[in-house]
Amino acid sequence: MAAHAQRGSTVATGGAGSKITDADTVIASLPGSVRVLALGGMGVENRACTLVRAAVRAGLRAEVLTSAPVASWDADVLLLAGLVERLRIPHVSLGDAGLAPGVRVAADAGLVFEDVDEALLIGALLAGAEDTPFHVLHKVGPNDVIDDNPLVGRLGELHTTPACQPDVVFLHAALADAQGNLAYLGSRFADLLLAEAGQRVYAQVDAIVPTAVIRRVGVSIPGHLVDGVVPAPFGAHPTGSSGCYVADFDHLRRYAGAVAAGQGAGYLATHCGPSDPQGYADLVGAPRLRELEVEALR
């Protein structure tokens, strides 16, 4: 959240007044371990996979990994790489491609699950955005997620959820201008809330466009909340980018198969290796990317 009093430093490489940067520069600007890392998007759409690949390359550690309520490949590879101590995401799966294998690998390695649901998570972010200590919830539980959950407080008859202000937020948007104004072509999911609650907010985008274009399309997240934008065409692959390309379920199935076959480390080395978006796009192949793009246009 660039406009926040505790804002992080902008790491632009695009010249004076520009917030354009690249994924490796963003990761290099962060401490080696962050307290709370938050991922935007939902399910298999708009996941900040280019930034996550850079985080895996650099070995960025997170004490707590959180996300909008449904996460997928992005959270899973961070878990597979052993970079997360505590998982605070209600649901992680590969969508139509099945269970998220990195979750199981991390669970066997001692990952701590902080069970939350949407109300706890969004309530915590609302409190974080408002800079209040907690958010009141009066319609949670009873169930085994809520009962005896240490993240659930009490205020008389009401439940509360403590504020969450992620130290670092990674987002994916279709478009941005050089000043960090983001335009989404579908839902903005919980991304605006994450940007308002977060301390340092970085967005990868499929394209950098003139401010006039952003104004015409409509600003989804204003640039004053964004610390840096990373040009990353097809950067959400193997998840989709709303309005631009759909998720690559064939790839996600191959990923799950590789982990099941004990080849997770090799997968990470290959698919998180390329340091520039074009290198990754070449790895996937232009014909496949074209298929995913065409499907989004149907």
Binding site: I89, N143, V145
Partner: peptide
């Protein structure tokens, strides 16, 4: 470990 559930409320 299952996938979890987004919304219980």
């Amino acid at each position: 470990r299952g996938p979890g559930i987004a919304n219980t409320s």
